[in-house]
Design a protein around this nucleic acid. Structure first.
Lengths: 131, 131
DNA sequence: CAGTATCCGTGGCGATACTG
DNA sequence: CAGTATCGCCACGGATACTG
């Protein structure tokens, strides 16, 4: 607990709150929803993590993400590319080589991923300790 | 670009990579998937954010989260409670007051949320700038 | 290798109505 | 106020087969 700020006790609900609760709170929720709209789902972040280790080809990404199917990988790659988080490059060689890589914008997710990863590790420890 | 580390060029795939790619990469993905399993979906994090401002009653949470329905709120609160991220308290007063609040474990998500929020704000700016 | 096509089930999620 | 009940859509996501 930090410093106590002004409190309001709502006479109808008996809830104690600060004056700005509503606007502050909704204001925090909206950007998180924006982020969630782009990142949520089972596969997007795993794919981004895989590519954060360097450019990779379709088959190799598939190998590194447990249980993903070709269809999901294909679909998610397309969406991530549309959001400018990854880039698809066709190398004009023989045989043709297609490579996926992170964009600079994709790299801006690194801290988000790092925090999620730390929390996940922590959470798994907690679950295992309980059972 | 940082310092260049040892690289391997796969003779079959022409992909350049570091020696530990596979294990490192999958090892990073798994905890993130653990976190996602608990947090992903449209409403869990918004609910947690709402409660991070202080204990609240059902109706008040509903008011602060745009577009959530009673049914979803009810269902998500139950799941969050099962995962020990929030607590449901029935105050033995008249009238009976039911209050939801964060657990200490719920508070451990603060940094995750903060990073998501920062990214979301940043992302919205970027989108608006493009159109 | 790098995908696409097709089929299909489950459940996430919404709308509305109702209850103690 | 604090939910539950019911209905129903459709997107998420899996399985399998196929293509250039």
């Amino acid at each position: 607990m930090e410093a106590q700020t002004e409190l309001i006790i709502d006479p109808d609900t008996y809830i104690t709150r600060t004056p700005l609760d509503h606007s502050e709170c909704t204001g925090m929720i909206l950007p998180v929803r924006d982020a969630l709209d782009i990142l949520s789902g089972k596969w997007k972040l795993p794919i981004i993590i895989a590519l954060s280790f360097g450019a990779k080809r379709f088959g190799q990404i598939a190998k590194e993400i447990p249980n993903i199917t070709d269809k999901m990988l294909s679909k998610e790659l397309r969406e991530l590319e549309m959001n400018d988080l990854i880039k698809r490059t066709v190398h004009d060689s023989y045989p043709v080589v297609i490579e996926y890589s992170m964009t600079p914008y994709g790299h801006s997710l690194e801290k988000v991923i790092e925090e999620l990863r730390k929390w996940g590790i922590q959470h798994r420890k907690r679950i295992l300790g309980k059972e």
